[in-house]
Design a protein around this nucleic acid. Structure first.
Lengths: 242, 242
DNA sequence: TTGACTTATATGTCTAGACATATAATCGTG
DNA sequence: CACGATTATATGTCTAGACATATAAGTCAA
Protein backbone atom coordinates (compact mmCIF):
# COMPACT_ATOMS: atom_id res chain seq x y z
CA UNK A 1 0.00 0.00 0.00
CA UNK A 2 1.73 3.14 -1.15
CA UNK A 3 -0.51 5.96 -0.14
CA UNK A 4 1.68 8.78 -1.31
CA UNK A 5 2.11 7.59 -4.88
CA UNK A 6 0.07 10.38 -6.41
CA UNK A 7 2.73 13.04 -6.86
CA UNK A 8 0.68 15.45 -8.93
CA UNK A 9 1.82 18.60 -7.23
CA UNK A 10 -1.44 19.67 -5.71
CA UNK A 11 -1.40 23.06 -4.10
CA UNK A 12 -1.28 21.86 -0.55
CA UNK A 13 -0.44 18.77 1.38
CA UNK A 14 -3.66 18.30 3.30
CA UNK A 15 -5.65 18.49 0.09
CA UNK A 16 -3.46 15.84 -1.43
CA UNK A 17 -3.96 13.59 1.56
CA UNK A 18 -7.69 14.15 1.36
CA UNK A 19 -7.76 13.46 -2.37
CA UNK A 20 -5.67 10.30 -1.98
CA UNK A 21 -8.07 8.87 0.56
CA UNK A 22 -11.14 9.99 -1.31
CA UNK A 23 -9.90 8.26 -4.43
CA UNK A 24 -9.47 4.95 -2.62
CA UNK A 25 -12.97 5.18 -1.26
CA UNK A 26 -14.57 6.13 -4.55
CA UNK A 27 -12.82 3.40 -6.50
CA UNK A 28 -13.98 0.87 -3.97
CA UNK A 29 -10.44 -0.07 -2.97
CA UNK A 30 -11.41 0.85 0.56
CA UNK A 31 -15.00 -0.40 0.85
CA UNK A 32 -17.53 0.69 3.47
CA UNK A 33 -16.42 -0.33 6.92
CA UNK A 34 -12.74 -0.33 6.00
CA UNK A 35 -10.51 1.22 8.61
CA UNK A 36 -8.43 4.10 7.31
CA UNK A 37 -4.83 4.32 8.53
CA UNK A 38 -4.51 5.96 11.92
CA UNK A 39 -3.48 9.58 12.05
CA UNK A 40 -0.04 8.67 13.35
CA UNK A 41 0.43 6.28 10.43
CA UNK A 42 -0.51 8.96 7.93
CA UNK A 43 1.79 11.39 9.72
CA UNK A 44 4.62 8.93 9.24
CA UNK A 45 3.67 8.21 5.63
CA UNK A 46 3.42 11.83 4.55
CA UNK A 47 6.04 13.18 6.89
CA UNK A 48 3.92 15.99 8.24
CA UNK A 49 2.43 17.04 11.55
CA UNK A 50 -0.72 15.54 12.95
CA UNK A 51 -2.74 18.72 12.47
CA UNK A 52 -2.27 18.47 8.72
CA UNK A 53 -3.53 14.92 8.61
CA UNK A 54 -6.29 15.83 11.05
CA UNK A 55 -7.52 18.59 8.77
CA UNK A 56 -7.77 16.20 5.82
CA UNK A 57 -9.66 13.60 7.86
CA UNK A 58 -11.93 16.17 9.46
CA UNK A 59 -13.04 17.42 6.08
CA UNK A 60 -13.74 13.88 4.90
CA UNK A 61 -15.77 13.34 8.04
CA UNK A 62 -17.67 16.58 7.46
CA UNK A 63 -18.48 15.36 3.97
CA UNK A 64 -19.81 12.12 5.46
CA UNK A 65 -17.34 10.00 3.55
CA UNK A 66 -15.77 8.64 6.70
CA UNK A 67 -16.77 8.22 10.29
CA UNK A 68 -14.35 8.89 13.09
CA UNK A 69 -14.54 7.01 16.36
CA UNK A 70 -12.41 7.73 19.36
CA UNK A 71 -10.00 5.03 20.27
CA UNK A 72 -11.21 2.92 17.35
CA UNK A 73 -10.09 4.86 14.29
CA UNK A 74 -11.64 6.25 11.12
CA UNK A 75 -13.87 4.15 8.91
CA UNK A 76 -15.31 4.42 5.45
CA UNK A 77 -18.99 5.14 5.80
CA UNK A 78 -21.67 3.23 4.07
CA UNK A 79 -22.99 5.11 1.08
CA UNK A 80 -26.17 6.93 1.84
CA UNK A 81 -28.51 6.04 -0.90
CA UNK A 82 -31.38 8.06 0.36
CA UNK A 83 -29.88 11.50 0.05
CA UNK A 84 -29.71 13.37 -3.21
CA UNK A 85 -29.22 16.94 -4.16
CA UNK A 86 -32.23 18.12 -6.02
CA UNK A 87 -31.72 21.24 -8.02
CA UNK A 88 -34.82 23.34 -8.12
CA UNK A 89 -33.76 26.45 -9.86
CA UNK A 90 -35.54 29.73 -9.81
CA UNK A 91 -37.96 29.33 -12.69
CA UNK A 92 -36.76 32.36 -14.57
CA UNK A 93 -33.16 31.20 -14.24
CA UNK A 94 -34.15 27.70 -15.23
CA UNK A 95 -35.83 28.84 -18.41
CA UNK A 96 -33.15 31.29 -19.44
CA UNK A 97 -30.53 28.64 -18.74
CA UNK A 98 -32.28 26.50 -21.34
CA UNK A 99 -31.80 29.31 -23.81
CA UNK A 100 -35.50 29.96 -24.06
CA UNK A 101 -37.40 33.18 -23.72
CA UNK A 102 -38.86 33.75 -20.28
CA UNK A 103 -42.37 35.08 -19.99
CA UNK A 104 -44.30 36.06 -16.89
CA UNK A 105 -47.94 36.87 -16.48
CA UNK A 106 -49.83 37.86 -13.36
CA UNK A 107 -53.21 36.19 -13.36
CA UNK A 108 -54.61 37.35 -10.05
CA UNK A 109 -53.61 39.14 -6.89
CA UNK A 110 -55.67 39.59 -3.77
CA UNK A 111 -55.02 41.14 -0.39
CA UNK A 112 -57.33 39.66 2.20
CA UNK A 113 -57.73 38.67 5.81
CA UNK A 114 -56.48 35.12 6.19
CA UNK A 115 -59.22 32.55 5.84
CA UNK A 116 -59.15 29.33 7.82
CA UNK A 117 -57.76 27.59 4.75
CA UNK A 118 -55.05 30.23 4.38
CA UNK A 119 -54.00 29.88 8.01
CA UNK A 120 -53.92 26.15 7.66
CA UNK A 121 -51.77 26.35 4.57
CA UNK A 122 -49.33 28.79 6.15
CA UNK A 123 -49.31 26.95 9.42
CA UNK A 124 -50.12 29.99 11.52
CA UNK A 125 -52.68 30.21 14.31
CA UNK A 126 -53.51 33.88 14.53
CA UNK A 127 -55.60 35.74 12.05
CA UNK A 128 -53.85 38.27 9.86
CA UNK A 129 -53.59 39.54 6.36
CA UNK A 130 -52.24 37.62 3.42
CA UNK A 131 -51.54 38.24 -0.24
CA UNK A 132 -52.72 35.56 -2.62
CA UNK A 133 -51.10 35.51 -6.04
CA UNK A 134 -51.72 33.40 -9.11
CA UNK A 135 -49.35 33.70 -12.03
CA UNK A 136 -47.93 31.86 -14.98
CA UNK A 137 -44.40 31.31 -16.22
CA UNK A 138 -43.78 30.51 -19.85
CA UNK A 139 -40.88 29.49 -22.05
CA UNK A 140 -40.93 30.79 -25.61
CA UNK A 141 -44.58 31.70 -25.05
CA UNK A 142 -45.49 28.13 -24.14
CA UNK A 143 -46.88 27.69 -20.62
CA UNK A 144 -44.19 26.26 -18.40
CA UNK A 145 -45.70 26.36 -14.93
CA UNK A 146 -48.53 27.96 -13.03
CA UNK A 147 -47.91 29.31 -9.59
CA UNK A 148 -50.36 29.70 -6.75
CA UNK A 149 -48.85 31.58 -3.84
CA UNK A 150 -49.76 32.85 -0.42
CA UNK A 151 -47.61 35.40 1.41
CA UNK A 152 -48.01 36.12 5.11
CA UNK A 153 -48.04 39.88 5.53
CA UNK A 154 -47.18 39.59 9.20
CA UNK A 155 -43.81 38.22 8.12
CA UNK A 156 -43.32 40.27 4.96
CA UNK A 157 -45.25 43.55 5.28
CA UNK A 158 -43.65 45.01 2.14
CA UNK A 159 -45.44 42.43 0.04
CA UNK A 160 -48.64 44.43 0.46
CA UNK A 161 -47.37 47.22 -1.74
CA UNK A 162 -45.02 45.30 -4.02
CA UNK A 163 -45.82 45.36 -7.72
CA UNK A 164 -46.12 41.78 -8.90
CA UNK A 165 -47.38 42.64 -12.35
CA UNK A 166 -43.86 42.71 -13.73
CA UNK A 167 -41.69 40.84 -11.27
CA UNK A 168 -42.54 37.26 -10.23
CA UNK A 169 -43.20 37.01 -6.49
CA UNK A 170 -40.51 34.35 -6.19
CA UNK A 171 -37.82 36.72 -7.44
CA UNK A 172 -39.17 39.55 -5.36
CA UNK A 173 -39.11 37.48 -2.19
CA UNK A 174 -35.63 36.24 -2.94
CA UNK A 175 -34.43 39.82 -2.85
CA UNK A 176 -36.38 40.82 0.22
CA UNK A 177 -36.01 37.82 2.49
CA UNK A 178 -32.34 37.21 3.22
CA UNK A 179 -32.42 33.69 4.55
CA UNK A 180 -34.99 30.98 4.96
CA UNK A 181 -35.63 27.36 5.40
CA UNK A 182 -37.99 25.55 3.15
CA UNK A 183 -39.74 22.29 2.63
CA UNK A 184 -40.68 20.87 -0.73
CA UNK A 185 -43.25 18.23 -1.31
CA UNK A 186 -43.51 16.63 -4.71
CA UNK A 187 -46.54 14.79 -5.94
CA UNK A 188 -48.60 14.15 -9.04
CA UNK A 189 -52.14 15.07 -9.96
CA UNK A 190 -54.25 15.13 -13.07
CA UNK A 191 -55.23 18.46 -14.51
CA UNK A 192 -58.64 19.86 -13.62
CA UNK A 193 -60.42 22.36 -15.85
CA UNK A 194 -58.70 25.43 -14.49
CA UNK A 195 -55.23 23.91 -14.52
CA UNK A 196 -55.68 22.49 -17.99
CA UNK A 197 -56.63 25.87 -19.32
CA UNK A 198 -53.76 27.66 -17.61
CA UNK A 199 -51.18 25.18 -18.84
CA UNK A 200 -52.80 24.67 -22.21
CA UNK A 201 -53.03 20.92 -21.78
CA UNK A 202 -55.87 18.45 -21.79
CA UNK A 203 -58.11 17.90 -18.81
CA UNK A 204 -56.93 14.70 -17.15
CA UNK A 205 -53.33 15.10 -18.30
CA UNK A 206 -50.67 14.41 -15.66
CA UNK A 207 -49.16 17.29 -13.71
CA UNK A 208 -46.14 17.40 -11.49
CA UNK A 209 -46.81 19.35 -8.31
CA UNK A 210 -44.30 21.06 -6.09
CA UNK A 211 -45.53 22.49 -2.83
CA UNK A 212 -43.01 24.71 -1.19
CA UNK A 213 -43.26 26.13 2.28
CA UNK A 214 -40.75 28.79 3.17
CA UNK A 215 -40.10 30.19 6.58
CA UNK A 216 -37.55 32.12 8.52
CA UNK A 217 -36.75 31.56 12.16
CA UNK A 218 -39.80 29.36 12.61
CA UNK A 219 -42.00 31.98 11.03
CA UNK A 220 -43.84 31.13 7.88
CA UNK A 221 -43.29 33.48 5.00
CA UNK A 222 -44.92 31.95 2.00
CA UNK A 223 -46.56 28.82 0.70
CA UNK A 224 -46.47 28.16 -3.01
CA UNK A 225 -47.82 25.46 -5.28
CA UNK A 226 -46.23 25.03 -8.67
CA UNK A 227 -47.88 22.95 -11.36
CA UNK A 228 -45.88 21.67 -14.30
CA UNK A 229 -47.09 19.66 -17.25
CA UNK A 230 -46.01 16.21 -16.10
CA UNK A 231 -44.96 14.78 -19.38
CA UNK A 232 -42.79 17.69 -20.42
CA UNK A 233 -41.12 18.89 -17.30
CA UNK A 234 -38.56 16.92 -15.41
CA UNK A 235 -36.76 17.45 -12.19
CA UNK A 236 -33.27 16.07 -12.22
CA UNK A 237 -31.37 15.16 -9.10
CA UNK A 238 -27.80 13.98 -9.19
CA UNK A 239 -25.81 12.73 -6.31
CA UNK A 240 -22.74 10.89 -5.27
CA UNK A 241 -22.62 8.25 -2.63
CA UNK A 242 -24.16 5.12 -4.13
CA UNK B 1 -22.18 44.07 18.76
CA UNK B 2 -21.40 41.53 21.43
CA UNK B 3 -20.49 38.37 19.65
CA UNK B 4 -19.68 36.28 22.68
CA UNK B 5 -22.92 36.84 24.52
CA UNK B 6 -24.16 33.29 24.11
CA UNK B 7 -22.60 31.62 27.11
CA UNK B 8 -24.40 28.31 26.85
CA UNK B 9 -21.47 26.08 27.59
CA UNK B 10 -21.19 24.32 24.28
CA UNK B 11 -18.73 21.50 24.19
CA UNK B 12 -15.98 23.34 22.42
CA UNK B 13 -14.99 26.86 21.62
CA UNK B 14 -14.71 26.60 17.86
CA UNK B 15 -18.18 25.13 17.68
CA UNK B 16 -19.52 27.98 19.72
CA UNK B 17 -17.86 30.50 17.44
CA UNK B 18 -19.29 28.71 14.43
CA UNK B 19 -22.77 28.56 15.97
CA UNK B 20 -22.65 32.24 16.95
CA UNK B 21 -21.85 33.29 13.41
CA UNK B 22 -24.30 30.86 11.87
CA UNK B 23 -27.05 32.25 14.04
CA UNK B 24 -26.41 35.80 12.90
CA UNK B 25 -26.52 34.70 9.30
CA UNK B 26 -29.66 32.64 9.68
CA UNK B 27 -31.54 35.32 11.53
CA UNK B 28 -30.65 37.80 8.84
CA UNK B 29 -28.74 40.04 11.22
CA UNK B 30 -25.79 39.58 8.89
CA UNK B 31 -27.35 39.60 5.43
CA UNK B 32 -25.73 38.28 2.25
CA UNK B 33 -22.66 40.30 1.37
CA UNK B 34 -22.02 41.34 4.96
CA UNK B 35 -18.40 41.18 6.00
CA UNK B 36 -17.78 38.94 8.96
CA UNK B 37 -15.28 40.18 11.56
CA UNK B 38 -11.68 39.46 10.62
CA UNK B 39 -9.99 36.50 12.17
CA UNK B 40 -7.84 38.73 14.37
CA UNK B 41 -10.97 40.50 15.63
CA UNK B 42 -12.60 37.20 16.54
CA UNK B 43 -9.37 36.09 18.17
CA UNK B 44 -9.51 39.20 20.36
CA UNK B 45 -13.22 38.79 21.03
CA UNK B 46 -13.05 35.15 22.06
CA UNK B 47 -9.59 35.26 23.54
CA UNK B 48 -8.31 32.25 21.65
CA UNK B 49 -5.69 31.47 19.05
CA UNK B 50 -6.19 32.10 15.35
CA UNK B 51 -6.32 28.41 14.49
CA UNK B 52 -9.44 28.03 16.59
CA UNK B 53 -11.19 30.87 14.81
CA UNK B 54 -9.87 29.60 11.49
CA UNK B 55 -11.39 26.20 12.05
CA UNK B 56 -14.80 27.71 12.71
CA UNK B 57 -14.64 29.90 9.62
CA UNK B 58 -13.29 27.11 7.44
CA UNK B 59 -16.23 24.91 8.29
CA UNK B 60 -18.67 27.70 7.54
CA UNK B 61 -16.93 28.16 4.19
CA UNK B 62 -17.10 24.44 3.50
CA UNK B 63 -20.82 24.57 4.18
CA UNK B 64 -21.13 27.42 1.67
CA UNK B 65 -22.49 29.80 4.26
CA UNK B 66 -19.64 32.22 3.86
CA UNK B 67 -17.07 33.03 1.25
CA UNK B 68 -13.50 33.80 2.18
CA UNK B 69 -11.37 36.15 0.13
CA UNK B 70 -7.72 36.81 0.74
CA UNK B 71 -6.91 40.26 1.88
CA UNK B 72 -10.57 41.21 1.73
CA UNK B 73 -12.17 39.15 4.49
CA UNK B 74 -15.04 36.70 4.89
CA UNK B 75 -18.49 37.45 3.55
CA UNK B 76 -21.94 36.01 3.97
CA UNK B 77 -22.85 34.17 0.80
CA UNK B 78 -26.04 34.64 -1.06
CA UNK B 79 -28.50 31.86 -0.30
CA UNK B 80 -28.63 29.21 -2.93
CA UNK B 81 -32.24 28.66 -3.52
CA UNK B 82 -31.89 26.05 -6.17
CA UNK B 83 -30.29 23.35 -4.11
CA UNK B 84 -32.28 21.06 -1.89
CA UNK B 85 -31.61 17.78 -0.24
CA UNK B 86 -34.12 15.30 -1.43
CA UNK B 87 -34.47 12.25 0.70
CA UNK B 88 -35.24 9.22 -1.36
CA UNK B 89 -35.03 6.43 1.11
CA UNK B 90 -34.64 2.81 0.32
CA UNK B 91 -38.24 1.73 -0.10
CA UNK B 92 -38.09 -0.98 2.50
CA UNK B 93 -36.55 1.42 5.02
CA UNK B 94 -39.06 4.07 4.10
CA UNK B 95 -42.01 1.81 4.73
CA UNK B 96 -40.71 0.30 7.94
CA UNK B 97 -39.84 3.80 9.17
CA UNK B 98 -43.52 4.61 8.78
CA UNK B 99 -44.29 1.74 11.09
CA UNK B 100 -46.00 -0.23 8.35
CA UNK B 101 -45.48 -3.77 7.24
CA UNK B 102 -43.19 -4.12 4.27
CA UNK B 103 -44.14 -6.51 1.52
CA UNK B 104 -42.21 -7.50 -1.58
CA UNK B 105 -43.29 -9.44 -4.58
CA UNK B 106 -41.31 -10.41 -7.65
CA UNK B 107 -43.50 -10.06 -10.72
CA UNK B 108 -41.07 -10.96 -13.45
CA UNK B 109 -37.39 -11.64 -14.06
CA UNK B 110 -35.69 -12.17 -17.37
CA UNK B 111 -32.09 -12.70 -18.39
CA UNK B 112 -31.63 -11.66 -21.99
CA UNK B 113 -29.25 -10.19 -24.50
CA UNK B 114 -29.63 -6.41 -24.39
CA UNK B 115 -32.08 -5.11 -26.92
CA UNK B 116 -31.60 -1.75 -28.58
CA UNK B 117 -34.05 -0.26 -26.09
CA UNK B 118 -32.13 -1.78 -23.18
CA UNK B 119 -28.84 -0.40 -24.43
CA UNK B 120 -30.39 2.98 -24.87
CA UNK B 121 -31.80 2.95 -21.39
CA UNK B 122 -28.53 1.88 -19.83
CA UNK B 123 -26.52 4.24 -21.97
CA UNK B 124 -24.13 1.57 -23.21
CA UNK B 125 -23.01 1.01 -26.78
CA UNK B 126 -21.93 -2.60 -26.86
CA UNK B 127 -24.25 -5.53 -26.84
CA UNK B 128 -24.30 -7.65 -23.71
CA UNK B 129 -26.56 -9.41 -21.31
CA UNK B 130 -28.97 -7.77 -18.95
CA UNK B 131 -31.39 -8.79 -16.23
CA UNK B 132 -34.83 -7.22 -16.39
CA UNK B 133 -36.84 -7.25 -13.19
CA UNK B 134 -40.35 -6.16 -12.40
CA UNK B 135 -41.50 -6.16 -8.82
CA UNK B 136 -43.85 -4.56 -6.38
CA UNK B 137 -43.40 -3.05 -2.95
CA UNK B 138 -46.31 -2.80 -0.59
CA UNK B 139 -47.08 -1.29 2.78
CA UNK B 140 -49.51 -3.20 4.98
CA UNK B 141 -50.45 -5.19 1.90
CA UNK B 142 -51.41 -2.07 -0.03
CA UNK B 143 -49.40 -1.48 -3.21
CA UNK B 144 -46.83 1.22 -2.54
CA UNK B 145 -44.72 1.28 -5.68
CA UNK B 146 -43.95 -0.81 -8.70
CA UNK B 147 -40.38 -1.16 -9.86
CA UNK B 148 -39.10 -1.83 -13.32
CA UNK B 149 -35.39 -2.43 -13.34
CA UNK B 150 -32.60 -3.26 -15.74
CA UNK B 151 -29.21 -4.47 -14.52
CA UNK B 152 -26.15 -4.55 -16.75
CA UNK B 153 -24.49 -7.92 -16.27
CA UNK B 154 -21.23 -6.63 -17.69
CA UNK B 155 -20.98 -4.41 -14.62
CA UNK B 156 -22.59 -6.71 -12.08
CA UNK B 157 -22.06 -10.33 -13.17
CA UNK B 158 -23.33 -11.71 -9.86
CA UNK B 159 -26.80 -10.40 -10.65
CA UNK B 160 -27.25 -13.27 -13.09
CA UNK B 161 -27.45 -15.82 -10.29
CA UNK B 162 -28.87 -13.67 -7.50
CA UNK B 163 -32.22 -14.72 -6.08
CA UNK B 164 -34.58 -11.79 -6.36
CA UNK B 165 -37.65 -13.68 -5.29
CA UNK B 166 -37.10 -12.78 -1.66
CA UNK B 167 -34.77 -9.82 -1.64
CA UNK B 168 -35.57 -6.67 -3.61
CA UNK B 169 -32.95 -5.93 -6.26
CA UNK B 170 -32.38 -2.49 -4.77
CA UNK B 171 -31.30 -3.94 -1.45
CA UNK B 172 -29.24 -6.61 -3.14
CA UNK B 173 -27.37 -4.07 -5.25
CA UNK B 174 -26.81 -1.85 -2.25
CA UNK B 175 -24.88 -4.67 -0.65
CA UNK B 176 -22.95 -5.66 -3.74
CA UNK B 177 -21.98 -2.32 -5.23
CA UNK B 178 -19.87 -0.32 -2.80
CA UNK B 179 -20.04 3.10 -4.34
CA UNK B 180 -21.93 4.72 -7.16
CA UNK B 181 -23.18 7.90 -8.62
CA UNK B 182 -26.75 8.27 -9.65
CA UNK B 183 -29.16 10.54 -11.41
CA UNK B 184 -32.82 10.86 -10.61
CA UNK B 185 -35.44 12.25 -12.87
CA UNK B 186 -38.87 12.96 -11.51
CA UNK B 187 -41.95 13.32 -13.64
CA UNK B 188 -45.65 12.57 -13.66
CA UNK B 189 -47.75 10.29 -15.84
CA UNK B 190 -51.23 8.89 -15.78
CA UNK B 191 -51.67 5.20 -15.11
CA UNK B 192 -52.07 2.89 -18.09
CA UNK B 193 -53.83 -0.47 -17.81
CA UNK B 194 -50.84 -2.41 -16.61
CA UNK B 195 -49.75 0.22 -14.07
CA UNK B 196 -53.28 0.68 -12.78
CA UNK B 197 -53.59 -3.01 -12.14
CA UNK B 198 -50.21 -3.30 -10.42
CA UNK B 199 -50.86 -0.35 -8.14
CA UNK B 200 -54.54 -1.11 -7.68
CA UNK B 201 -55.62 2.32 -8.82
CA UNK B 202 -57.86 3.57 -11.58
CA UNK B 203 -56.71 3.86 -15.15
CA UNK B 204 -55.95 7.53 -15.75
CA UNK B 205 -55.05 8.21 -12.13
CA UNK B 206 -51.90 10.29 -11.58
CA UNK B 207 -48.57 8.58 -10.89
CA UNK B 208 -45.32 9.99 -9.69
CA UNK B 209 -42.37 8.60 -11.62
CA UNK B 210 -38.79 8.36 -10.49
CA UNK B 211 -36.23 7.25 -13.02
CA UNK B 212 -32.94 6.42 -11.45
CA UNK B 213 -29.73 5.69 -13.30
CA UNK B 214 -26.90 4.35 -11.24
CA UNK B 215 -23.32 3.94 -12.29
CA UNK B 216 -19.88 3.49 -10.91
CA UNK B 217 -16.75 4.98 -12.37
CA UNK B 218 -18.55 5.98 -15.55
CA UNK B 219 -19.96 2.49 -15.93
CA UNK B 220 -23.69 2.02 -15.86
CA UNK B 221 -24.94 -0.49 -13.38
CA UNK B 222 -28.69 -0.25 -13.35
CA UNK B 223 -31.62 1.77 -14.56
CA UNK B 224 -34.81 1.70 -12.55
CA UNK B 225 -38.23 3.24 -12.92
CA UNK B 226 -40.38 3.54 -9.84
CA UNK B 227 -44.07 4.32 -10.09
CA UNK B 228 -45.96 5.62 -7.08
CA UNK B 229 -49.62 6.46 -6.81
CA UNK B 230 -49.39 10.22 -7.24
CA UNK B 231 -52.08 11.25 -4.85
CA UNK B 232 -50.87 9.16 -1.96
CA UNK B 233 -47.14 9.25 -2.11
CA UNK B 234 -45.10 12.34 -1.49
CA UNK B 235 -41.46 13.14 -1.75
CA UNK B 236 -40.34 15.61 0.82
CA UNK B 237 -37.26 17.72 0.46
CA UNK B 238 -36.07 20.06 3.14
CA UNK B 239 -33.28 22.50 2.90
CA UNK B 240 -31.66 25.48 4.45
CA UNK B 241 -30.47 28.45 2.59
CA UNK B 242 -33.53 29.95 1.02
C1' DT C 1 -19.94 -16.27 32.74
C1' DT C 2 -20.82 -11.87 33.97
C1' DG C 3 -20.18 -7.38 35.62
C1' DA C 4 -17.23 -3.70 37.47
C1' DC C 5 -12.90 -1.51 37.29
C1' DT C 6 -8.62 -0.06 35.04
C1' DT C 7 -5.69 1.09 31.27
C1' DA C 8 -4.15 2.11 26.80
C1' DT C 9 -4.95 4.66 22.80
C1' DA C 10 -7.02 7.28 18.86
C1' DT C 11 -9.35 11.12 18.15
C1' DG C 12 -10.82 16.10 19.66
C1' DT C 13 -9.41 20.43 20.65
C1' DC C 14 -6.18 24.03 21.35
C1' DT C 15 -1.81 27.06 21.40
C1' DA C 16 1.69 30.40 19.86
C1' DG C 17 4.12 30.82 16.80
C1' DA C 18 5.84 30.66 11.32
C1' DC C 19 5.97 31.55 6.32
C1' DA C 20 3.26 31.63 1.87
C1' DT C 21 0.16 33.90 -1.18
C1' DA C 22 -3.41 36.42 -3.29
C1' DT C 23 -5.05 40.87 -3.72
C1' DA C 24 -7.00 45.52 -2.23
C1' DA C 25 -5.11 49.79 -1.68
C1' DT C 26 -1.66 53.00 -2.34
C1' DC C 27 1.89 55.38 -4.69
C1' DG C 28 4.35 57.04 -8.76
C1' DT C 29 4.94 57.94 -13.32
C1' DG C 30 3.93 59.01 -18.08
C1' DC D 1 -6.29 60.63 -15.73
C1' DA D 2 -4.71 56.03 -16.77
C1' DC D 3 -1.72 52.42 -15.82
C1' DG D 4 1.96 49.84 -13.79
C1' DA D 5 4.69 48.90 -9.60
C1' DT D 6 4.78 48.53 -4.68
C1' DT D 7 3.03 47.59 -0.19
C1' DA D 8 0.05 46.23 3.37
C1' DT D 9 -2.91 42.80 5.00
C1' DA D 10 -6.24 38.91 5.56
C1' DT D 11 -6.48 34.44 4.63
C1' DG D 12 -4.10 29.66 3.68
C1' DT D 13 -1.25 26.34 5.33
C1' DC D 14 1.76 24.21 8.53
C1' DT D 15 4.46 22.88 12.93
C1' DA D 16 5.57 20.66 17.36
C1' DG D 17 4.03 20.44 20.97
C1' DA D 18 -0.10 20.03 24.93
C1' DC D 19 -4.07 18.22 27.56
C1' DA D 20 -8.94 16.39 27.26
C1' DT D 21 -12.01 12.62 26.48
C1' DA D 22 -14.39 8.73 24.84
C1' DT D 23 -13.94 4.00 24.53
C1' DA D 24 -11.98 -0.68 23.09
C1' DA D 25 -9.70 -3.95 25.46
C1' DG D 26 -7.85 -6.10 29.15
C1' DT D 27 -8.11 -7.36 34.30
C1' DC D 28 -10.09 -9.10 38.17
C1' DA D 29 -13.52 -10.43 41.38
C1' DA D 30 -18.23 -12.32 42.39
Amino acid sequence: MSLATDTTDQPTLYKRIRADIEKRILTGEWPPGHRIPFEHELVARYGCSRMTVNKALSELAQADLIERRRRAGSFVRRPQHQSAVLKIADIRAEITALGRGYGYELIGRKLRAATAADRDRLGVKKAGKVVAITCRHSADNVPFAVEDRLIDLASVPDAATADFSREPPGSWLLHHVPWTEAEHTISAIVADDRTAEALDIAVGAPCLVIDRYTWRSARTITAVRLLYPGDSHRLVARFKGG
